[in-house]
């Protein structure tokens, strides 16, 4: 036990200060609507992550948001287990046809008002997989998308900027 405490003590706090994205950066992410956003979300958002067909690269970087460097919960952003508790659906992947109904039902289960953030190049435009017999391509082909965070995969910093842009 002492070893454990010693390690915690010597590690210290590694969480990094976060510089909010500038307005033009936000615009690149498609967040022009931020001035008009619903006040209900200000200060806190609950996210339901949905992998709709991703290669799992995006999931690795979404996971990283919870590591002590980014510690995204300090901004009131947390991941919830049920879409019924969610303000935001964070959707990755091209939407595989086998996940299409599951994604639609998850979207319906999330209460209004809700936002959909498409994460990664595949979610943005189909990426390496595009549209085929097995893939619907971009998330916006299946449900309405409010914000797109591109990247293959987007870095945790890009994800932070995009998500914090929502509650700015």
């Amino acid at each position: 036990m002492l070893r454990l405490f010693k390690k915690i003590l010597t590690t210290g706090v590694v969480t990094e200060p976060f510089k909010a994205a500038k307005d033009d950066e936000l615009e690149q992410l498609g967040i022009q609507i931020k001035k008009f956003i619903d006040k209900k979300f200000s200060g806190s958002i609950a996210i339901r992550a949905v992998d709709a067909g991703s290669c799992n690269g995006c999931e690795l970087e979404i996971h990283a948001l919870n590591n002590p460097f980014y510690d995204i919960e300090r901004f009131g952003i947390h991941f919830v287990a049920s879409p019924r508790h969610a303000d935001v659906l964070l959707v990755t992947g091209p939407v595989s046809r086998h996940m299409q109904t599951a994604l639609l039902r998850t979207y319906e289960a999330a209460p209004n008002p809700k936002w959909v953030v498409a994460v990664g190049d595949c979610a943005a435009c189909g990426g390496e997989f595009g549209i085929s017999y097995a893939s619907c391509g971009a998330v916006s082909n299946v449900i309405p998308v409010d914000v797109v965070i591109p990247g293959c995969p987007p870095t945790p910093l890009a994800l932070m900027k995009g998500l914090l842009g929502l509650i700015k």
Binding site: D51, P94, H98, M99, F129, S132
Partner: peptide, 11 residues
Amino acid sequence: LGYVHKGIEKI
């Protein structure tokens, strides 16, 4: 399984 079948072999 099979939910994330993206047709990799075909494409």
